[in-house]
Deep mutational scan, measured.
Amino acid sequence: EPLWIRPDAPSRCTWQLGRPASESPHHHTAPAKSPKILPDILKKIGDTPMVRINKIGKKFGLKCELLAKCEFFNAGGSVKDRISLRMIEDAERDGTLKPGDTIIEPTSGNTGIGLALAAAVRGYRCIIVMPEKMSSEKVDVLRALGAEIVRTPTNARFDSPESHVGVAWRLKNEIPNSHILDQYRNASNPLAHYDTTADEILQQCDGKLDMLVASVGTGGTITGIARKLKEKCPGCRIIGVDPEGSILAEPEELNQTEQTTYEVEGIGYDFIPTVLDRTVVDKWFKSNDEEAFTFARMLIAQEGLLCGGSAGSTVAVAVKAAQELQEGQRCVVILPDSVRNYMTKFLSDRWMLQKGFLKEEDLTEKKPWWWHLRVQELGLSAPLTVLPTITCGHTIEILREKGFDQAPVVDEAGVILGMVTLGNMLSSLLAGKVQPSDQVGKVIYKQFKQIRLTDTLGRLSHILEMDHFALVVHEQIQYHSTGKSSQRQMVFGVVTAIDLLNFVAAQERDQK
């Protein structure tokens, strides 16, 4: 057995438009009618409502009807409940999964919650491996369901041993009777949507819809739904939504950006999952974080739909894509998950301010006199920076000697690579993860907040409520011999709460 199987392995699926269902090699399930009293909570997966979006479509000038398939009504709160249950049931049916076995899954959280929910009911041990950027709410729900959680670096490539995929496979090879159901490759993922989600949409719309818009992560949702719609409703256009920084969209030119990270969760990847059939997507749109969270908040405030950030991405694209539809036509959007997962993220004004998705003037509360002053007023001194090749031991000596707790790590040209902190280095040394002679590049981390000289002290204040420091950066445009230009970030300084307090105190003292 291989040590790991690539999540982007070539698909062996034989589905073709027009091929009889009787030739399918898979076990198919028909939607079942729910009894009045459910035998367990797993029976509350599927049969989610279709809700008309009344205000947002009109606000953006849509002539067509805009409908939302509300997947956050599933038992675990997301569309991923469907595939989690289906993968477990299919693994039980073919004898792969037996009582007492362990389920391991690399996930952005929602599939993990679905699997942990099913594992709690069915009696399996469950280990979820997820990147650090995923919300604390997801972690809390997983723990409450009895799952064990392993976190991995957000910026690790999918084929790196440190990625959530790599760590999951390492655990599988170490733990007896453990299984990775593997949402990236498992046919049960798109089949769950082909058999149930798509049929529900067709039934709820009486077979009449002209466009379907869905955000894409593993691709199982859009693949399964689109294949069924292509068979039953061939005139329906399928629109895929991919965040900026991901590479799922086609044509490839759409993916060209210097951005590699994004805040919206559960969609987009740096590889093409095996289950994603991009041939059934008629057109791709890219979405960005700001519009995703703005539209998610709009869905909550104006439509009462308590959905997550990827739902915002989907609707932001839908109001663009559906401009081509006329009166009497219908566009369906998939709202994948609930706001429950993001209470401390985009639902929080403070978080939105820190990330730059909300401006101070958007909030009406009274601010102190210094709130709208610029960061450049602080008069920061030149920063202490270190090269990635310097040793951890030497870096600790320098920081202690100069009285700093942290320093930016830059390359020879001064471009920011990340940050090192005294606390992080000492804990890594004590844990045996690094040696004093190791290069400081081994303990770089990139989960820090950046701020510009033109940003306000109010925004800085919000950042420092949650973080010990902020890195002050400025952009530099560099022209190359080819005539092309590129933008790079340079370090201007490091600012802490002490710097802000000293500035405010000094100004008030001078005024007296």
Score class of each variant (00 low, 15 high):
Phe295Gln: 15
Ile334Val: 11
Ser481Val: 15
Phe404Thr: 08
Ala413Pro: 10
Lys446Gly: 07
Arg350Val: 08
Phe295Cys: 10
Leu378Thr: 02
Ser481Met: 15
Asn288Cys: 11
Lys286Ala: 02
His480Tyr: 11
Ala407Gly: 13
Ala318Tyr: 07
Gly356Cys: 05
Leu453Asp: 02
Gly432Pro: 06
Leu358Trp: 02
His462Arg: 06
Gln326Trp: 09
Thr314Phe: 07
Trp284Thr: 02
Asp411Pro: 12
Val280His: 05
Ile498Phe: 08
Ser310Gly: 02
His474Asn: 04
Tyr262Val: 06
Leu276His: 12
Glu365Leu: 09
Thr421Ser: 10
Asp510Ala: 02
Glu401Ser: 09
Gly245Leu: 05
Gly379Leu: 02
Cys307Val: 02
Arg297Asn: 02
Lys345Cys: 05
Gln354Gly: 02
Gly308Leu: 02
Ile334Tyr: 02
Lys286Tyr: 05
Phe293Leu: 04
Gly312His: 07
Gln439Val: 11
Thr395Glu: 02
Met352Val: 02
Ala301Pro: 04
Phe448Ile: 12
Thr482Phe: 12
Val415Tyr: 13
Ala470Glu: 02
Ala497Lys: 09
Lys484Asp: 02
Lys449Ser: 10
Leu429Val: 11
Pro388Val: 11
Gly245Met: 02
Gly304Cys: 02
His480Gly: 05
Glu465Asn: 15
Leu460Phe: 14
Glu327Gln: 11
Thr389Val: 13
Lys320Glu: 09
Pro436Asn: 05
Tyr269Ser: 06
Glu263Cys: 08
Val440Ala: 08
Glu324Cys: 02
Val317Met: 15
Asp277Pro: 06
Glu327Val: 07
Lys283Pro: 07
Cys331Gly: 07
Ser437Arg: 11
Asp411Tyr: 11
Gly308Ser: 02
His468Phe: 10
Thr279Gln: 14
Gln439Leu: 09
Ile390Asn: 12
Phe357His: 07
Ala292Arg: 07
Gly356Thr: 07
Leu501Val: 11
Leu358Ala: 07
Ile390Thr: 15
Thr294Tyr: 13
Val434Ser: 02
Glu365Val: 11
Ile396Phe: 09
Thr421Cys: 08
Val280Pro: 09
Lys283Cys: 13
Leu325Cys: 11
Tyr262Pro: 06
Thr261Phe: 15
Phe293Ala: 02
Leu399Trp: 06
Asp349Arg: 02
Val386His: 07
Gly308Tyr: 02
Glu475Phe: 09
Lys402Ala: 05
Leu358Gly: 06
Glu377Thr: 07
Ser481Ala: 14
Phe346Gly: 02
Ser485His: 02
Phe492Cys: 11
Val409Ile: 12
Ala407Trp: 05
Glu258Ala: 07
Gln302Gly: 05
Ile463Tyr: 12
Gln507Ala: 14
Leu399Lys: 08
Ser313Lys: 06
Asp362Ile: 04
Val410Phe: 10
Gly441Ala: 10
Thr364Val: 02
Asp499Ala: 05
Lys446His: 11
Ile390Leu: 12
Gly266Phe: 06
Ala413Gly: 12
Ala382Tyr: 02
Glu263Met: 08
Ala407Leu: 14
Glu412Tyr: 10
Ser427Val: 07
Thr456Arg: 09
Phe492Gly: 12
Leu471Ala: 06
Gln376Ser: 09
Gln256Pro: 06
Gln478Pro: 13
Lys359His: 15
Met352Lys: 08
Glu412His: 15
Glu397Ala: 13
Phe404Met: 14
Thr279Asp: 07
Gln435Tyr: 15
Ala301Leu: 11
Gly483Phe: 12
Leu399Gly: 02
Ile300Leu: 04
Thr385Asn: 15
Val386Arg: 02
Val410Arg: 13
Leu306Cys: 14
Val280Met: 10
Pro273Thr: 09
Asn341Met: 05
Gly328Asp: 12
Glu253Arg: 11
Gln329Leu: 09
Gly432Ser: 05
Val241Lys: 04
Ala413Asp: 02
Asn255Ile: 02
His462Tyr: 13
Leu501Ala: 06
Gln406Ile: 11
Thr389Cys: 07
Arg374Cys: 12
Asp362Thr: 12
Ser338Phe: 10
Phe271Gly: 02
Tyr262Cys: 05
Val386Lys: 09
Gly356Leu: 05
Val472Lys: 02
Ile451Val: 14
Phe448Met: 06
Val281Gln: 02
Leu471Ile: 14
Arg452Trp: 14
Leu363Trp: 15
Glu465Lys: 15
Leu378Phe: 13
Ile498Ala: 15
Leu276Ala: 10
Gln256Phe: 10
Gly393Ile: 11
Leu500Tyr: 07
Arg509Val: 14
Met490Ser: 11
Tyr479Phe: 12
Pro408Lys: 02
Val410Thr: 12
Cys307Tyr: 07
Val472Ile: 02
Leu453Phe: 13
Gly245Thr: 07
Ser428Lys: 06
Ala407Val: 13
Ala497His: 02
Val494Ile: 15
Val315Gly: 09
Ser287Lys: 13
Leu378Ile: 04
